[in-house]
Simulated scan of single mutants.
Amino acid sequence: MRSIKQIHKAEYRPISDLITYSPMPTGSIQMIDPFLFLNHHGPQQYPPNNNGLPFGPHPHRGMETVTFILDGDIAHKDSGGHKSVIENGGVQWMTAGSGLLHAEVSSEKFKKEGGDLEILQLWVNLPAEHKMTEPKYVGFQRDQIPTISLDNGKVTGQVVSGSLEGTKGAFNTFTDVNLATLNFEENAKVSLDIPKDHNIFFYVIKGEFEVNGEQVKALHLAEFNNDDEQLEIEAKSESTLLLGHAKPFDEPVVARGPFVMNTMEEIDEAYADFQTGKMGAWKE
């Protein structure tokens, strides 16, 4: 079985009144190539007449954002002309590529009525050859994302990208990035084979797992060695997992703020292009 290198605890980093845990990067881990960053917002309940999510217009270049709406909703808008409201169970995939501005806020309905909110946002790197690709956005609601059932229905989930146990994911991606969210009943088990040359992203959203003989609790990220293919996962309670894997790019990574490139010169260029309007203009 594949061995665990280290288990990392998410750091608590609230953003205004938004509960936020950050499993990566932290003081103990910078990235799991090509996975760059994860923020876990919530779970929490917003009252009626709230301000909603605080993520107003901001730029990105050189990476992709994958946003899992576990509860609540997100109203997306970007300088490429894309607009959507994705509700609980849905996923957004935005390829920033050469650069764009976007905002991720709550819908007017959510701000007026309030409700439960829980969201994950994962940043996935783009390889050098695709960093300046044309920006793209796709948002899928819950019923547009393929589902999977394992262990006689005790494990259910969504296949977001790549494939899992023969089920193809909803999103077509530049690189072979495999992502799924999996819900386990207590004592449910799965055995998965993941290519040895792929890095694994294993984040426990809630509950507790025993994976390859080690305990991994909620709000913890397991970092694995690349020494075997087999994962044996057992839920010790009702639990939810974000599972990803991909072949690492093994390229230099220079990240500053919302930009992820390969050199500092490219970062400087990204800031200059943003400031001169080359990433698009924001229209209310």
Rank of each mutant, 00 (worst) to 15 (best):
L117F: 08
P258E: 06
N88S: 15
Y271W: 15
E118M: 10
L231H: 08
P195L: 08
H41E: 03
K131I: 06
W93L: 12
L150M: 15
G207E: 03
I7W: 00
F174M: 09
P248K: 09
P195F: 13
Q6V: 09
A103I: 01
A75H: 12
N226F: 03
V260W: 11
N199D: 09
A222K: 08
V105T: 13
N262T: 15
V190Y: 00
F274V: 12
P146W: 12
D151W: 03
L243W: 10
E214V: 08
E87T: 14
V253M: 13
Q92W: 04
M132P: 00
I200T: 11
H245M: 12
F202I: 12
Q158A: 13
F274S: 03
T156R: 13
H76V: 14
V211C: 10
P54H: 02
H41G: 01
V160I: 15
G162I: 08
G72R: 04
S106A: 10
A255T: 13
K77Y: 04
M1R: 07
Q92E: 14
Q44P: 00
F201S: 10
G115S: 11
V159D: 11
K83A: 15
G97E: 00
F201N: 05
I86H: 03
S191Y: 01
V85C: 09
E265C: 08
L241W: 01
S22K: 15
K83G: 04
T133W: 02
N39S: 07
P258G: 06
S16M: 13
W282F: 12
G257E: 06
Y46R: 13
V160Q: 04
K112A: 14
F259K: 07
D17F: 04
Y12E: 14
G114K: 04
P14N: 15
S16P: 04
L117Q: 15
T181W: 04
N172Q: 14
G257D: 07
V216I: 14
L221C: 11
H60L: 08
N125C: 10
M94H: 02
K154S: 15
T175K: 12
I267N: 09
T95M: 03
F110H: 09
N39M: 04
D71T: 06
R13D: 00
P34E: 00
Q44W: 00
T175L: 08
E284K: 15
L53F: 09
I19M: 13
H76T: 12
T175P: 03
E64H: 10
V211W: 03
G207L: 09
Q92M: 12
E87Q: 14
L100H: 06
V155D: 02
E129C: 03
A170P: 02
P23Y: 05
Q275P: 00
V204Q: 03
A272I: 13
V159S: 09
D228Q: 12
